[in-house]
Design a protein around this nucleic acid. Sequence first.
DNA 1: ATTTGATTTAACTAAACGGTCAAAATTAGA
DNA 2: TCTAATTTTGACCGTTTAGTTAAATCAAAT
Lengths: 203, 203
Amino acid sequence: MVKSKNTEEKILDSAREIFMMKGFEGARMQEIADHAGINKALLHYYFRSKEKLFASIFNKILSQIGPAMLTFINEEIPLEVKIWKFVDSYLELMKKFPRMPLFIINEISINPERIIGHLNFSDFLDLRKLEKILHDEHGKGRIIAVDVKHFIVNIIGLTVFPLAAKIIIQRNLQIQNDEWHQFIEERKKVIPETIMGWLKNMD
Amino acid sequence: MVKSKNTEEKILDSAREIFMMKGFEGARMQEIADHAGINKALLHYYFRSKEKLFASIFNKILSQIGPAMLTFINEEIPLEVKIWKFVDSYLELMKKFPRMPLFIINEISINPERIIGHLNFSDFLDLRKLEKILHDEHGKGRIIAVDVKHFIVNIIGLTVFPLAAKIIIQRNLQIQNDEWHQFIEERKKVIPETIMGWLKNMD
DNA sequence: ATTTGATTTAACTAAACGGTCAAAATTAGA
DNA sequence: TCTAATTTTGACCGTTTAGTTAAATCAAAT
């Protein structure tokens, strides 16, 4: 006999929702149970502790991020298109779960021990390969020489920051809720332009 | 008769330390008291509640950020230098409190109501003025036409993200603790280069 | 229909937490 | 030195929290 798939899924969905909204410390098992429409005891019946429940949803989330951005690097397409594909797939993924980036960064920063082993994007982001691509492009005189670390931090920073700091940006740049989607769409153009402008800035 | 300045300062320092490390929900009044070397009752004697103590350090922190980055915009210096000055002053300020950016973004995102009124960088960042600068530079044919919103998000994203995601970046790009300082120094060059490359990318 | 195992519930526990209180200690002015 | 206000403390309180337990319900197989 299998534990009702429905109940387990309802729990995981609710846990993700509440944990993302309040963080590990701020989340309450009672609130997760309420949100799932079940008893608190049943919550502990499925996932023995808050820590284990958190680990379940956290692993699930992390395992979804990688593959969603994996594809672009191996395809035989121009560098600019690779960047666009990365930004596009990342921003599309985050439309469903806007709080995900900030949630992940924060929980890892506050409690790195809990995470060890889970998060290495080396699984889906081959540093050496990327380094080779940049090196080759530079060899062909197409781009300036850049450090792959700054290349990655630049792209991810430009992409992730506006999502993580959404509320602050909305408040200060006065972007209404209905304009936010448009702003994110614009970034799909702006980010590749920014990176390529940098790479091609050959004075 | 004045409340011992020493004790109040010790409390505020400890509170900032603990709150930044664990967040509002994760922080414990007992831990803050221990860190300050005082009794928990004394903590409540100085700051009546956890909320009020948190508000005190949060306001203090926010009021320090603005002015530290204020100066650059009004000076009669080239745009690139303005950007460099902003990045430099921001990164220097964050050397003392590396967890500050993530802390601020997270607490505001989780509980925006608590913050209302505190955070508007419109006090020190005049959007219209910046817009005029970009417009004039474009008029002189020096840069492409860009949206000031993306200009700001780009600069802040490139600057703040590596600080906020420090642990994740260190793990994945294999930057040791003693190399981190060097990496941040490098970003003072990379960020202005990235932005200016973008702005001057006139095909 | 009865049995067996999985699922769900209400009621409970122990510990941790923010906060209070009254008394003790300290400080500063008269 | 004495007094009065401020500062500091240990002991305490009520609530909230994650987690447990034992009984009840349900579903499927015999």
